[in-house]
Simulated assay, not measured.
Amino acid sequence: MRTSQFTPAEIPGGEFYHRLGRTRHYRWWTLPLTLLAFAVLLFFLGVGIALATTLVSVLGGNSLISDSPLSEIGQLAFGLLSVALLAPIVLFLVRVVQWRRTGTLLSVEGRVRWRWLGLCTALAIPPAAVCAAAFLLLAELLRPELVPNEDAGGKVVFAAVMAVVLLLVPFQTAAEEITTRGLFMQMVGALGPRPGEPGGDGAAARVLRSPFTAVTASGVLFAAVYAATHPGDLWTTASLAVFGLAMSWLTWYTGGLEAAIGLHMVAGLIQFTLCAFEGRTAEIGTGAVVGAGLPLGSGTPLVLLLTFAQTALYAIAVLWAARRRNVRRVSARS
């Protein structure tokens, strides 16, 4: 059967997740063009968010730039929404710039495996809850100032913050995984030519095709960004690297983003809830708390211990479940 040159590329057959970006439409300029388009779209997204924030502030009597609880909730909503909007940007880049099916970004089956995502989310609850409880216990003994001990703003404000968190955090965490563990991992994984292609039999090509390269690059991306903006916070940087590398490896091993999204979403909901409970909502909205809320115990050795324990327990559970369910790791051969 003949395939039109202008139709989006199908899923490459017999490939691991990190290699799904190496389609029949892939060219040497695909990576730089994708990065350039991503930067341009991020610029316009930032401009749009700034204009929307200003407009709402003016119409609402500067409610978003005051010190009122309403301003903190508004900043939180805008902050989460701005990250969530990365998802349509990335899907646009995959479909239009890279000219391939958007499903190749989600899993080796070309779609979200909803049952697997639900199971991964359920598996994330016990280790995240145990580490949150351990944080409260250890922090009270070692660093009492870290313990959330008051409901700032009253029940109404807390309920409003939690409504925003429950509504937007799942989209925000999914967007972060689609960007870092999805687009970035597959861009790096697509660099190495296949055996038989020009340059595909050399040592450099084998290194670029290796999952180690793609997993490492996508795993440390967010930690590197955080380290550049917070050079003195080595403990938090190390914990972000541990979390990122674990999620990148699970994405490769399970053939999709579901495992990474599951733990990221559950951990994010817990972290945001604790931030809201102790009255640190403003930090989230203004970006002082990056991403899904910094890990529990940020800035202390406790953060690395808790992150390692949480990711290790979760990885063991996911590996067990993936083997029992025979989760597909490689795309079907065409």
Rank of each mutant, 00 (worst) to 15 (best):
25 H>Y: 11
142 L>K: 09
320 W>F: 12
109 E>S: 13
134 A>G: 15
284 I>C: 02
131 C>M: 14
312 A>C: 01
104 T>M: 12
201 D>W: 03
170 P>M: 05
207 V>L: 13
285 G>S: 07
15 E>C: 14
315 A>V: 06
120 C>P: 03
92 F>E: 06
208 L>C: 03
130 V>M: 09
206 R>S: 10
87 A>V: 02
127 P>M: 06
208 L>D: 02
165 V>E: 03
221 L>Y: 06
81 L>F: 12
262 G>Q: 00
56 V>K: 06
50 A>I: 10
68 S>E: 14
292 A>V: 05
186 Q>S: 09
277 F>G: 09
308 F>Y: 05
254 T>S: 05
232 G>M: 05
81 L>C: 11
214 A>R: 00
153 G>S: 07
289 V>Y: 01
5 Q>T: 05
33 L>S: 14
76 L>I: 05
237 T>V: 08
276 A>P: 07
127 P>D: 07
277 F>N: 01
32 P>A: 13
261 I>D: 00
216 T>F: 14
78 F>T: 08
311 T>Q: 12
2 R>D: 04
255 G>D: 00
184 F>R: 03
201 D>T: 05
199 G>H: 06
283 E>C: 00
40 V>S: 08
240 L>R: 02
22 R>T: 13
225 V>M: 10
105 L>M: 11
165 V>N: 11
332 A>E: 13
163 A>S: 13
256 G>F: 03
91 L>F: 14
128 A>T: 15
230 H>S: 14
292 A>C: 02
23 T>M: 10
204 A>V: 12
132 A>W: 02
241 A>Y: 01
290 V>W: 07
67 D>L: 14
9 A>N: 01
158 F>M: 12
328 R>V: 15
131 C>Q: 05
234 L>Q: 07
146 L>N: 06
238 A>G: 11
219 G>N: 03
163 A>I: 14
120 C>F: 08
30 T>L: 09
